[in-house]
Simulated scan of single mutants.
Amino acid sequence: MSGPLQHIRILDFTTLLPGPYATMMLADMGADVLRVESPSRLDLVRVMPPHDRGVATAHSYLNRGKRSLALDLKQQECVETVKALVRDYDVVVEQFRPGVMDRLGVGYATLREINPRLIYCAITGYGQTGPYRLRAGHDINYLALAGVASYSGRAEGGPPPLGIQVADVAGGSHHAVMGILAAIIHRQQSGEGQFVDVSMTDAAFSLNAMAGAAALGADHQPGPESDVLNGGSFYDYYRTADNRWLAVGSLEPQFMQELCKTLGCPELASKGLSPKPEHQQQLKQTLRERFAEQPLEHWQHVFADREACVEPVLTLREASEHPQLTSRDMVIEVDRGDGEKQRQLGHPIKFSETPCQSRFAGRVLGADNESVLQELEEHKSK
């Protein structure tokens, strides 16, 4: 095992996407992650299509590098097993609604009595406090309440259901990882563990970086296609002759000048740099017309060596084969457990001295029960 977290041990009680993504990142960074799952309440990600040789690809990816322990926490002996395990673990991550782990007998108050250095991270939709703390929700709900959806999409079409789960991953998962790592540093300095409360709605609200600063600081309330970065300017996507798309982000003067020069309309560069909506719409219409004249391949060739911030909208398959991503090891092969390999997304953080490793794909439920319980017995006997 390698990676900067190779001495950190994590008990993972999470399911679905946010928690498993967070603990997968930690496992890639070397943490020893033991996933504790119910044998009777199946994680839906385990059965979600599509499958590769009978195993859900989402499960294989989200739970790679983690051992699996099947425990029914409604059984007292299983609760006692968790209490015994937590003595030698650094972090607990869970994703139940507030109070569930307490009712099961393995909440923070109980576990910190056993291990005062324990870092306990709870990922929920709305956090441990507030009137919505017990309310059900999913990614689309968190983005709606956080204000993100209100200025996304088209003025006529409304907010889009995004292709990625922003509140779950950029919100819950990434903020959980940050919180856990910060708590580990604090414990190294003080010897104290602590409770880390991550709300996906809070995290999504904090992602309103530019628009949120304007709304709170200057009472500027954005709507769809109202601002420079959300479709209100030329900064947008444009359809090509073969029904593909180009992303145009030529915001700085030198990029705008190169864009207009390449398209044969250098006189329009001043309009692209103008804050006036009518100038932006004039340029935008010209870009629509020009890009619609040729297929995507043509424009890729034209802009290949031009610094104009124009790039093709790639499919996931095309992106996985792009030389920039492949050169960065963003597509890797992971041991599937049957002697074969599965292609998966690579880890995005590159360490010079402690590189990440994706050791094996998500395992069968309870695959490590025997070895984990044997380790526990050996430890008790010492």
Results as ranks from 00 to 15, higher is better:
W299S: 08
G223C: 01
W299I: 13
A304F: 05
Q285H: 13
E321R: 15
V313W: 06
S274D: 13
E340R: 15
L287R: 04
R306I: 06
T326N: 06
G339R: 12
I332K: 14
G223R: 01
P312N: 11
F205C: 03
E293I: 04
T286W: 12
R290Y: 07
A213K: 01
D305E: 15
G264H: 12
V331C: 11
C260E: 12
R244F: 05
H220L: 01
Y238G: 04
D197L: 05
G232K: 02
D338R: 14
H301G: 07
T286L: 12
E321L: 14
S327R: 15
L316I: 14
S226I: 00
A218T: 00
F303D: 06
G249P: 05
M256C: 13
H279N: 14
A215G: 01
R317I: 09
D335Y: 09
S233A: 12
V302P: 03
R244L: 09
W299Q: 07
A247N: 14
Y238V: 10
L263S: 08
E289D: 15
A319P: 04
G231F: 01
D227L: 00
Y235F: 07
G264P: 04
V313S: 09
W245T: 08
H279C: 13
A304Y: 05
V310G: 06
P295D: 10
A213E: 01
S320D: 05
G264T: 05
K271R: 14
M256I: 04
L314Q: 14
H298G: 02
H322G: 05
V334C: 12
T240Q: 03
R328I: 04
D197I: 10
L259N: 07
D338S: 12
E297N: 13
I332E: 13
V228I: 10
V334I: 10
V310H: 08
E318S: 08
T286C: 14
L251H: 08
M200C: 03
E278A: 15
H298W: 11
E333D: 15
R290C: 05
K271W: 12
L216R: 00
K261M: 08
P295L: 04
A209L: 11
R328L: 13
L268Y: 14
E311G: 07
V228P: 00
D305F: 04
S250Y: 07
T262G: 09
F303W: 07
M210I: 02
L283A: 06
R288G: 03
Y238H: 09
P275Q: 13
E252W: 08
F303E: 11
H322A: 11
G231Q: 01
